[in-house]
Design a protein around this nucleic acid. Structure first.
Lengths: 233, 233
DNA sequence: CGTTAGGGTGTACGCTGTACACATGTCAAG
DNA sequence: CTTGACATGTGTACAGCGTACACCCTAACG
């Protein structure tokens, strides 16, 4: 066929291709591997070429967040509580599988349109459910990064030594100093390594939503006496 | 005075001095300025000298967390709810002023002893209050990074353009697309820029603690029918 | 005295983001 | 058909990062 005598021209880059490639690379190789150089290589292009499509790496990360946030299901039609619940769980699902999403979202300092869309839609649900602007505001803060379906679990464990004897010794020492942690780690099915992230997430979400509902029903206002320090007496 | 003929010898480095200097540097110049090189310079020493006292930068960060976590007040004697509340607020206060603390704590993947101490002490409070191991476990997850007094607020705002006309236009556009965000930003005293972080934190903390109390009182168990998806019906 | 070990030094490597000047390809106007 | 503008990709270069490795100096000990 009458191909150009030179090498067949690549389809030119564009912002979208760059972002998608970045997401793919982060998914496969981890966010720490996502460098401008690696990404460029993946796109078979020289690193500086990327800068014609994103201003810098920060903007690249912003764009990546937009890509996955854009995949969240549209707001469901339902009672405020179910609507919020479903939407947040849907967000959680959208971010699932992008291990890096939590880390990147939490490192953003400026909101992109997609991010604002999500926030606005959640706020709209509370307002439609009769929540005051005031309460909606606090409730959004209370959700925090949980509105993305993120669990910021701070449950790290120290790395046990390889040697069995040393490990046994460490365990005893550990049990003496941290009795409750050990108790939890060795009791029941729902604890230890067999922790069900999804269950923990929904548990917390429901504690919050139930709390919100209660405050709403009792007409909570931030200016009520006694609300200076305690949300609900 | 009979000083050595050579330059007066520096007091030798040690791990503690390194960590304290790192904390001080991060406090003053920001965490992004804390490089091994800058830290070394601050200590009037060559960068590689630091590696005789900390294995690598990760361990340095671990140590920095330990330093500030070590400053949290000892557990108070009180009813479980007040005890947890006070301890968390105390943690919050200890981390206050170290703007970098939140970011660094959340980036840790391994727990240090000081971190485990804090967790164990909180768990002990729930247990002493009669919480089951089961409920204590879920409740700790629900607290998440909030047990450090951290608010992971995802409330970033887009940067407004400098030009007043452009800003006005952007504002109108914004109001059309994000009506609820605008509504919140322009209504009442507790919203917009005048957001009281401490209030938001305590609000959420109390919503959670009240929720925990309610579950505890009604003898909640994770194996109860209907608890598969909903924490509290 | 000689030896040893711990702490500080100097050099060097590979990696990062990105500024800047340049080449090339595409398309519209003259 | 030429010309010039514009968008896109290239190449080189720089400053910064964490840190491996070999080295030196000094204090303590036998």
């Amino acid at each position: 066929m009458a191909e150009r005598t030179q090498a067949p021209r690549r389809t030119p880059l564009n912002r979208d291709r760059v972002l998608r490639a970045a997401v793919a690379l982060a998914d496969e190789a981890g966010i720490e591997t996502l460098s401008m150089r690696n990404l460029a290589q993946q796109l078979d292009v020289v690193p500086m070429a990327l800068y014609k499509h994103v201003a810098n790496k920060e903007e690249l990360l912003d764009g990546m967040v937009d890509v996955i946030v854009g995949e969240i299901d549209p707001p469901p039609r339902a009672d405020w509580k179910d609507a919020v619940r479903q939407r947040i769980l849907s967000a959680r699902q959208a971010l699932q599988g992008h291990h890096w999403a939590s880390q990147v979202i939490e490192s953003r300092t400026r909101a992109t349109p997609a991010v604002l869309d999500h926030m606005d839609s959640l706020m709209g649900m509370f307002r439609a459910g009769g929540f005051s602007v005031d309460l909606t505001h606090h409730v959004m803060h209370a959700l925090g990064s949980r509105m993305w379906g993120l669990t910021r679990d701070v449950f790290p464990t120290p790395t046990p030594p390889a040697d069995p004897d040393a490990r046994e010794a460490m365990f005893r020492q550990f049990a003496a100093r941290y009795p409750h942690i050990i108790e939890m780690a060795t009791t029941g099915s729902a604890s230890g390594q067999g922790c069900d992230d999804q269950f923990e997430f929904e548990f917390t979400l429901d504690v919050l939503l139930d709390g919100f509902e209660r405050l709403h029903q009792q007409g909570w206002r931030s200016t009520d006496p006694g609300n200076g320090t305690r949300a609900a007496g």
